[in-house]
C-alpha cells in the first residue's frame, strides 16, 4: 500500500474508503423511525445480502441508497459523495413483478433505458445499442432481444432488468429480491450469472433466497429497524442458526422479527 502511494502520485484508491458508508443513519416517513442508528460499510468488490422481515426497512434502505429518499439523521455516502450525485455509478434492478404486463416494449428497448443518461433527444446512438446488446449477452439473452417483454418468463424478465442495469456500466449493483419470481429449475443458471457479475462489481441485494446467499454473499446484513452484520462464511453452527433464522423470517416474519427480536442475529 505504501509503495503504491509513493509511485502513483495520485491519491490511492484507498482500500478503506468503502463504496458505501452509512453512519448513524436514521429515517422515518413519519415521526416513527423505520431505520434507526444504522451504521455499516461495504468495501469494494464485496457482495452483501440484506435480509429481514417485511416492514423492517430493507426497501427504505434501498431507496436511501438510490437517493430517492433523504436520510433524516446521520450520513450515507456512496463513492464518497451523496447517493443522488452518484446515481450514474449505481445499477438498480427492481422486481420484475412491478411492471404492466401489457406494456408494448421489447427486451432491447428496456435494456436501452440503461443508457438514458447519454441521450438528450432523438434516437439512441450506435454505441448505446452495442452496449445494450452486450449487456443482454452478459445475462444470456442475446437471442431474445426483440421479443416483447410480456412474452418472457419471470426469470427472463428479471434478467432483462439486470441487463438494463448493466447497460449503464455500474460499479455498484443493487438488486431487490432478484429470485423472488424465478422457478427453482432456472434458479441455478440465474445464480451463475450473478456469480459471474460478482467478479467485476460490488453487489448489494435484498433476498430471502438461501442458495443465493450462500453462493453469492460475502456477508449478510440483517435489517430490522437497526442493522446487524454477519460475515460469511460462518461456522457451521452459526450458519445453521442464521439460516434457521432466515427461514423463520420467511415463515414467521410478522411476529418474531417485527417485535425487534434479533436473538438469531446476535451471535458474533
Amino acid at each position: 500500500m505504501e509503495t503504491c502511494r509513493e509511485t502513483d502520485g495520485n491519491p490511492p484508491p484507498a482500500q478503506d474508503a468503502a463504496i458505501v458508508e452509512a453512519s448513524n443513519l436514521s429515517f422515518g416517513y413519519t415521526r416513527q423511525l423505520v431505520l434507526e442508528d444504522v451504521s455499516f460499510s461495504i468495501p469494494e468488490g464485496e457482495s452483501l445480502c440484506m435480509i429481514g422481515p417485511n416492514g423492517g426497512g430493507k426497501s427504505t434502505l434501498l431507496k436511501l441508497l438510490l437517493g430517492l429518499l433523504e436520510p433524516g439523521k446521520g450520513s450515507l455516502s456512496l463513492f464518497g459523495s451523496s447517493p443522488e450525485n452518484t446515481r450514474s455509478k449505481v445499477g438498480y434492478v427492481p422486481q420484475a413483478m412491478r411492471f404492466d404486463p401489457l406494456f408494448p416494449i421489447t427486451a432491447l428497448d428496456i435494456v436501452l433505458m440503461g443508457r438514458l443518461e447519454r441521450l438528450r433527444w432523438g434516437r439512441f446512438k450506435k454505441s448505446c445499442h452495442e452496449a445494450a446488446e452486450k449487456a443482454l449477452g452478459q445475462v444470456g439473452l442475446q437471442d431474445l432481444a426483440h421479443r416483447p417483454f410480456s412474452d418472457l418468463s419471470g426469470g427472463q424478465r428479471q434478467r432483462v432488468l439486470i441487463a438494463r442495469a448493466l447497460a449503464s456500466e455500474p460499479q455498484l449493483l443493487l438488486l431487490d429480491e432478484p429470485t423472488a419470481n424465478i422457478d427453482l429449475s432456472v434458479e441455478e443458471k440465474f445464480i451463475e450469472t450473478l456469480a459471474e457479475l460478482k467478479k467485476s462489481m460490488t453487489i448489494l441485494m435484498v433476498t430471502h433466497d438461501l442458495d443465493l446467499i450462500s453462493e453469492i454473499g460475502d456477508s449478510v446484513l440483517c435489517v430490522n429497524h437497526r442493522v446487524h452484520r454477519h460475515s460469511l462464511p460462518l461456522s457451521g453452527e452459526t450458519i445453521k442458526e442464521i439460516y434457521s433464522g432466515v427461514r423463520r423470517l420467511e415463515h414467521d416474519r410478522k411476529t418474531r422479527h417485527l417485535q425487534g427480536d434479533h436473538s438469531v442475529c446476535q451471535h458474533e
Binding site: L68, R87, V90, P94, F103, M113, L119, W121
Partner: peptide, 23 residues
C-alpha cells in the same frame, strides 16, 4: 414526441428507473 420518444416511453414504463438515469 419525436424528440423525446425514448424518454416518454421510459417514464411511462418505469418512472422510478427513468429518474435514476437522470430523466
Amino acid at each position: 414526441i419525436l424528440l423525446f420518444y425514448h424518454k416518454l416511453v421510459a417514464v411511462c414504463f418505469d418512472e422510478e428507473y427513468a429518474r435514476l438515469r437522470g430523466v
